[in-house]
């Protein structure tokens, strides 16, 4: 947009050629992008202002912002929002700190060892949320779960703990599983960022007698700021969208309901009320707004640093 003025040399015929070629190359991608991402985005906003249901028997009425007003008084939603925020607030810093530590411990290792470690930490992501969840459900199981059998075998607990059925533990179990499936990508990113740190600066600082700790905070850390920012943003988005774990492990029970699961529940499971599409979409809009605000805040904080 702004660089229009910087290309004064392009003749009109040439510009036309570029336009035609550019849009022809964009076309196949644009069909899918507009059709299956941009249009649903607008449908989502549109529906959030109506009382639409899944089975459109009655006429849909425009209800303004009343869905959003209803959300404020919906205790289930507020509880889900609270849980979602707990997940985000705990897992985002934990993921960032853990992956930074692992990366700084492995990035100097020899090629094959390094890629072996990278692969191992990436494995839970590749395994897929369903397979990971199914195995963790077994591991946390009240009777035959490996965690209970090991703990009671070692005499650490007297009675088996019902991890997923007890609201004292369930949310933390979810956070733990989410954590193992979230650190893979940040580690890959941090390893390459650490490898790209300007070595001459590091050497200069070492000559001046800086300790390892100082080298890290004063030289490496500032250079890795863009990577950190990216990691914070993607981890925030992922944590906000935590769904498969909830749906497969607890169905929102034992105090683990999240906004994403409640959206799904409202749209598909409340069958006696025929699926509240309008209401579910209003929650979707709220979630998107929260993510947008948090991403913007993170950008701003990173810029100031």
């Amino acid at each position: 947009m702004a660089n229009k003025a910087s290309k004064p040399t392009m003749s009109r015929a040439l510009q036309r050629r570029e336009d035609v070629a550019g849009y022809l190359f964009m076309l196949p991608s644009l069909i899918f992008f507009l059709g299956f991402v941009v249009i649903p985005m607008f449908i989502c906003i549109g529906y959030s202002l109506t009382d639409a249901t899944m089975h459109q028997k009655a006429a849909t009425a425009f209800v303004g912002f009343s869905n959003f007003g209803k959300l404020l008084g919906d205790e289930v939603f507020l509880e889900a929002l609270k849980n979602t925020f707990i997940i985000v607030i705990v897992s985002v810093p934990a993921v960032a700190a853990f992956s930074l530590w692992v990366s700084s411990a492995i990035y100097k290792l020899k090629g094959p060892v390094l890629s072996a470690f990278r692969c191992i930490f990436y494995l839970p992501v590749v395994t897929g949320s369903v397979a990971v969840t199914v195995v963790w459900k077994w591991m946390f199981d009240n009777y035959t779960g490996i965690i209970n059998t090991v703990l009671s075998g070692a005499g650490l607990i007297e009675k088996n703990i019902n991890f997923l059925g007890d609201s004292r533990y369930a949310l933390w179990c979810i956070i733990l599983i989410l954590f193992t499936t979230s650190v893979g990508q940040p580690i890959v990113l941090y390893v390459s960022a650490l490898g790209n740190v300007d070595q001459s600066l590091v050497e200069a600082a070492q000559v001046d007698g800086a300790t390892n700790f100082q080298v890290f905070w004063k030289i490496k850390w500032p250079q890795m700021m863009p990577t950190t920012l990216y990691i914070l943003v993607i981890t925030t988005i992922n944590s906000f969208q935590c769904f498969a774990l909830i749906q497969l492990l607890t169905q929102g029970g034992s105090g683990t309901n999240t906004v994403m699961y409640y959206i799904y529940y409202t749209a598909f499971k409340l069958t006696e009320q025929a699926g509240h599409f309008g209401y579910a979409n209003a929650m979707g809009v709220v979630l998107a707004v929260f993510i947008a605000i948090l991403s913007a805040v993170q950008f701003k904080l990173a810029k100031e640093k």
Partner: peptide
């Protein structure tokens, strides 16, 4: 968030 648009 990708999942938000799934219902529409």
């Amino acid at each position: 968030p990708k999942q938000v648009i799934l219902i529409p």
